[in-house]
Design a binder for these strands. Structure first.
Lengths: 160, 160, 160, 160
DNA sequence: TTTT
DNA sequence: TTTT
């Protein structure tokens, strides 16, 4: 059935890259999407939308985008439930990104570096928009993905 | 910022119609949206997506659609947080429907009736698709909205 | 770059199924999508949107849906140009359907028949919503695709 | 009926701002949207999608965005037909933008200037994303809309 | 060239 | 008639 979501927003923090037991990459991230209208106090609020992305695109996102980066996401809404530490069933809703477009990387130099757009490609045949962020800060030869924690994750939620 | 969701799914139960203290109608409902692929056990799963709809459309939805009805929704994702009974902060994600399209009403006769499409209109200038479900079961002269509980609800989440 | 379109509408005629020289199935169809508002004369108008769909889904669409059937489409806008008979460059815009959902087949018995939903599947792993139209008229043992014209078509527009 | 399109792309030229006889602003523009895959020659192509936008947002777009600017569009597909000079019926398809998000203005200094984001607002209650393009070139006190041609246009296509 |  |  039809289930389609398109978002443009900014990462609230660096994406969290992990690997399933089978070595499949997954990244979780939250998008702050500003609302187009003001609330009754006249303030602009934002929605904080949890997203997941799989495989190569997860790795690219973690390499090139960080806290504050602006991305476009095309995906679908997925709901899951699991039992938390207190044995209570928790329901969660997130967007499974089928493709991401890099619209702007964060412009600060501190924190995670941007990798080397020159020699690494953020383009995969299958999905994205090939926008090469120009204001990308790129200085160190830092190894990409080094903060990925290859923990034991189940492949259960793997789509397709 | 761009925030757009389009869904087609079935109501998991009758919509819950309420009114804010100012008399604004709101309906909450959950859509079961079947996934287009099977899981690792070869089963087809569904996502259960919480939705809200406001004003006239809330009333129309509650009048004409019930458990099992198929609807299309065009809206945006909204996140909210509130403190539950145990004082724990709960985050929730839902789709604010800006327009709904009635694709098929449930075909059973029991439970909530379909209202009188003949004299009540489910068409508003602003939004929807004017599909008049033909297999609509319509037999009783039951008053519409009679199961709406006009409780005290805040207008805080009222969009626009 | 983001390019996403979701439509729900009715086929203005039976889909036209063809095959490229390499045997790839393509179907063209037009969707009448009713507008949610009235024009200045107080009439409801519709948009007539050209769509294309490829491979297995093209065949399924041609087998099960016909003039008047209601479908949901999830795809992207594509523009093409070609030189017409008079040597004039023609620009056209159409929606490439990545997945279709069968919402309702036409309810008349005349014209193309609906095939045998009982033994043929309109579900493919990759895409659609598995809605089994219940009011489907199914009577003849008519061979599916028999009105497909396996003409010489180029694969140039084949996406992915 | 559901009819939703979301695009991110670049203006192929400066938007064309006009006014109807009743003084309603309309801007036409074309978006180049790069495809996420390569063709059989290994080249990346783009779709060139015609768009229209009405009222205040038309004026804002014309003031702040020009050839090469990147924008996000949330709207719906509309088809129209008219008879051309040779008396031939022409069908056209375009996207009616309900909201636009300014993602990046062109970074050149020549050509149309960017107006004064400081004192003019590109934010309207109704629609857009409030992104303030930071690399905006802003130097001249050029009057906004001065290249708008207040020609005689019909209000016929005015939506809502 | 348009659907219910 | 097309953008980076």
């Amino acid at each position: 059935m039809l289930n389609r979501t398109v978002l443009v927003g900014r990462l609230t923090k660096d994406p969290e890259l992990r690997y399933t037991a089978n070595g499949v990459a997954v990244a979780n991230f939250t998008l702050a999407v500003n609302r187009p209208f003001s609330n009754q106090q006249g303030e602009r609020e934002a929605d904080f939308i949890n997203c997941v992305i799989w495989r190569k695109q997860a790795e690219n996102l973690a390499s090139y985008m960080g806290k504050g980066s602006m991305v476009g996401v095309d995906g679908r809404i997925q709901t899951r439930s699991f039992d938390n530490q207190e044995g209570k069933r928790i329901f969660m809703t997130e967007v499974v990104a089928e493709s991401v477009q890099f619209l702007e990387s964060r412009n600060s130099n501190q924190g995670k570096q941007g990798g080397q757009p020159g020699n690494t490609s953020n383009q995969t045949q299958q999905n994205q928009g090939g926008f090469q962020p120009q204001q990308e800060s790129q200085s160190s030869g830092q190894e990409p993905f080094d903060n990925a924690e290859p923990v034991d994750l189940s492949d259960d939620d793997l789509p397709f």
